[in-house]
Design a protein around this nucleic acid. Structure first.
Length: 539
RNA sequence: GGGGCGGUAGCUCAGCCGGUCAGAGCAUCGGACUCAUAAUCCGUGGGUCGUGGGUUCAAGUCCCACCCGCCCUACCA
């Protein structure tokens, strides 16, 4: 099959990454939030007909994992394997995440390239041997920055005296890159988003950068420095480089050229700086093209408190999907929280949106339309039109034209907001504006009243109304598919669309608003309720 | 300590460079309707716009102080 219109063989893929998550613990809502967002973004671009690559993965080195593994009586590798296979991958599968690859930093395809990369930087003089010294807390087993300490050089965590330690390690000449980074931010104003995040990074870089220590010799769970194996690479270069190694850096030049650089790196606020400062500097040092943008999403707040591993607030993704379902879960966080901002959420708010937006507005619309086509036309979608002769591609009358216009506008808005701006909340709202419009149309046209008129004119009018509603649902299914694929598949089936239009995922955003795609004769069936009413509010 | 952001109807939030800016959605209440998941559609509610000053003919919308919450201030993903 030929490439779709907008894609050519040599075109670079729309490449999106999530952070690689630290596998010390099981995934929580925050991880899922970022990963779902990336999934919706990439599904949207696939429906634009673009070549897409969506990467997620896990960060598996470091002292913490080493210690956790020890505490559990297994090797670090065993520990990582277990968590990845039993917790992380299953959750992504459960949440319908359609990632194209899953990279683990312990894989040879990664570790070998990382070694080549640092060797390269070393050969270029970008890395030098130096010493790090600072206040070290034995309890934390890590260095503190002087500003963190409490009165009397006490560790803020353990409230005990820190020790002044000195360690030899290797440094990356990050300090050289301040001016070039600022220049880059200047000429690429959208590189860091949202704007608030960008400002913080700018402020930070303007203060002047220090060189970055990139190795540790105090533990060995990591990638050895090739020229000095007593050292292992410390987090930054190891972790960040996954975005390159996963798409063939240093091993598969063709794939690399077809994918690199990333269009969007999704990150949490906590790791923004590494992605917006260290990462581009690393790439500059090695002469690689820089990514398109780094988008930092906010924290999920529960009752005004940040969700973190120390405060999971007792809610796991599974608990929510068990109650609300996977699609509603995917929908809720993106709809309720402006992407890039911190957002508070609650069980109550989730319930309210589920009922009002998903069940009442969307699910019920699908339900009432299918029911009426079944009742009045035996489930066979009738032909719309003026006196039965209007071309299918034209909406029949003023009321129908208003629907077609509304669809065109919602589609255009959603495409820009979701596909370009990563404004998922705004884009979903645009689609739901259309859902509401169709509900209003039905109330105004009152097909159940028209149905009592059995004259040919009456039948024709009824056909037009129901055709318009069903055709609207066809579009809604396509537009919402990136967000709620399982539900939209049900709707697609209910509309009997696939035999005529092909698989839902193959429907193009550019075609959504072209009126009259769903042909008369499609077999419309009631199908199951899209969003069943929730049981008890809690547990 | 320094820097940034936020505090607007019960809830979540819009309100750009000052003059219909006192709003939206949800919830509430009233009405219409019955195709549908007791759904839909229409209308409604009057909240000192954190506190106290100030500038101005005019201030959520600018200035100052203060109160409250959050974030950043480099090596924990």
């Amino acid at each position: 099959m030929a490439a779709t219109g907008s894609t050519t063989a040599g075109e670079s893929a729309f490449y999106v990454t999530t952070p690689i998550y630290y596998v010390n613990d099981a995934p929580h809502l925050g991880h899922a939030y970022t990963t779902v967002a990336g999934d919706v973004l990439t599904r949207w671009h696939r429906q634009r007909g673009e070549k897409v690559w969506y990467l997620t993965g896990t960060d598996e080195h470091g002292q913490k994992i080493m210690r956790t593994a020890e505490a559990n009586g297994v090797t670090p590798q065993q520990w990582c394997d277990k968590l990845v296979e039993e917790a992380w991958k299953p959750l992504w599968s459960h949440l319908s995440i359609a990632n194209d690859d899953f990279i683990r930093t312990t894989e040879p395809r990664h570790t070998k390239r990382v070694q080549e990369f640092v060797q390269d930087l070393y050969d270029k003089g970008e890395i030098y041997r130096g010493g790090y010294e600072g206040p070290y807390c034995v309890g934390c087993e890590e260095y503190k920055s002087p500003g963190d300490l409490l009165e009397g050089d006490l560790c803020p965590v353990h409230k005990r005296q820190v020790e002044w330690l000195k360690e030899e390690n290797y440094f990356f000449r990050l300090s050289d890159y301040g001016p070039r980074l600022l220049e880059f931010y200047e000429s690429n104003p959208d590189f860091i988003q949202p704007a608030s995040a960008r400002n913080e990074v700018l402020q930070f870089v303007r203060q002047g950068l220090q060189d970055l220590s990139i190795s540790r010799s105090t533990f060995d769970w990591g990638i050895p420095i090739p020229w000095d194996p007593k050292h292992v690479i410390y987090v930054w270069i190891d972790a960040l480089l996954n975005y390159a190694t996963a798409v063939g850096y240093g091993s598969d030049q063709i794939k690399f050229d077809a994918t690199w650089p990333a269009n969007v790196h999704l990150v949490g606020k906590d790791i923004l700086r590494f992605h917006a400062v260290i990462w581009p500097a690393m790439l500059m040092a090695n002469g690689l093209p820089l990514p398109g943008r780094v988008f930092a999403n906010g924290w999920l707040m529960v009752g005004g408190e940040k969700m973190s591993k120390s405060n999971l607030t007792g809610i796991s993704p599974r608990q929510l999907t068990d109650h609300f379902g996977v699609d509603a879960y995917r929908y809720y966080f993106l709809r309720a929280i402006p992407f890039g901002q911190d957002g508070s959420f609650s069980w109550e708010d989730f319930s309210a949106r589920y009922t009002s937006e998903l069940a009442n507005d969307f699910g019920n619309l699908a339900s009432r339309v299918a029911a009426m086509v079944g009742k009045y036309f035996d489930g066979v979608l009738p032909e719309a039109g003026n006196s039965g002769t209007a071309p299918e591609a034209v909406a029949s009358g003023p009321a129908e034209q208003a629907i077609a216009d509304g669809l065109a506008e919602s589609t255009a808005r959603a495409d820009t907001l979701i596909g370009d701006n990563l404004d998922f909340a705004g884009g979903i709202a645009a689609i739901f504006d259309f859902v509401k419009q169709v509900n209003g149309y039905l109330t105004e046209q009152a097909p159940w009243k028209v149905a009592k008129d059995e004259s040919p004119e009456g039948r024709a009018r009824l056909a037009t109304i129901l055709y318009t509603a069903a055709e609207s649902l066809r579009a809604i299914a396509v537009l919402l598919n990136p967000v709620m694929p399982a539900t939209c598949a049900k709707l697609w089936a209910s509309l009997g669309a696939e035999p005529h239009l092909g698989p839902l995922a193959d429907q193009r955003v550019a075609d959504v608003a072209r009126w009259g795609r769903l042909p008369a004769g499609a077999h419309v069936t009631k199908g199951e309720i899209l969003f069943p009413r929730l049981n008890d509010p809690k547990s």
